[in-house]
Amino acid sequence: MIFFAVYKTEDKSTGDAELVFLIAGGDKKAMKTLVDRYKKRAFYLALGMVGNKDEAFDISQEAFIRVFKSAARFERGHEFFPWFYSIVVNLCKDCLARRKNKEAREMNLDDAAYLLVADSNPEDAVIKEELSRDVQQALMELDFEDREIIMLKHFKDLSYDEIAALLKIPKGTVMSRLYYARKKLVKRLARYV
């Protein structure tokens, strides 16, 4: 248990899976190392999925707590990130399901300062801010699966092999899901493309 944690983990090169096993044994420092290693990825992943900064923080922190609670069930030989990814994604789905309807989903879009921002120079900052808002809005209107694959390709720049491994689908399915998701996004952003 966390109160009786033994400080064993200092080595930054310790693998993720090894850290999870240390966490299962109550190693608080291992937990901190894992949190420091993945906090930004978890947060930005959640932000892309739910479009709200506060909820994204909440989801990312809850994901780490789930890791802590279920570390003992993590199987040796498996990679940590796909497991962690599915925890974050499920929490995002739960969060969106709680919002219940599309209108609420759109209303929950966060302040633009924390959402997508274009690399802008001052002259066209206003135009780019509007574009950012429209892109974020269009993304939030997509189905979860479409948004997810767009996020992984366009904003995380993962290869098809990496996406296939993460989503546990064949590479051909990645290509086709990406095609249809892009088609929908292009339709929503017709005034820009």
């Binding site: 930005y44 932000l47 892309g48 300062a113 924390y114 959402l115 997508l116 921002v117 274009a118 690399d119 574009l131 950012s132 892109v135 767009i150 366009h154 904003f155 892009r182 996004l185 292009v186 952003l189 820009y192 493309v193």
Partner: peptide, 11 residues
């Protein structure tokens, strides 16, 4: 579309 999203990042 790729060009637009490629020029964006999270704050």
């Amino acid at each position: 579309l790729k060009e637009i999203t490629g020029a964006m990042k999270y704050a």
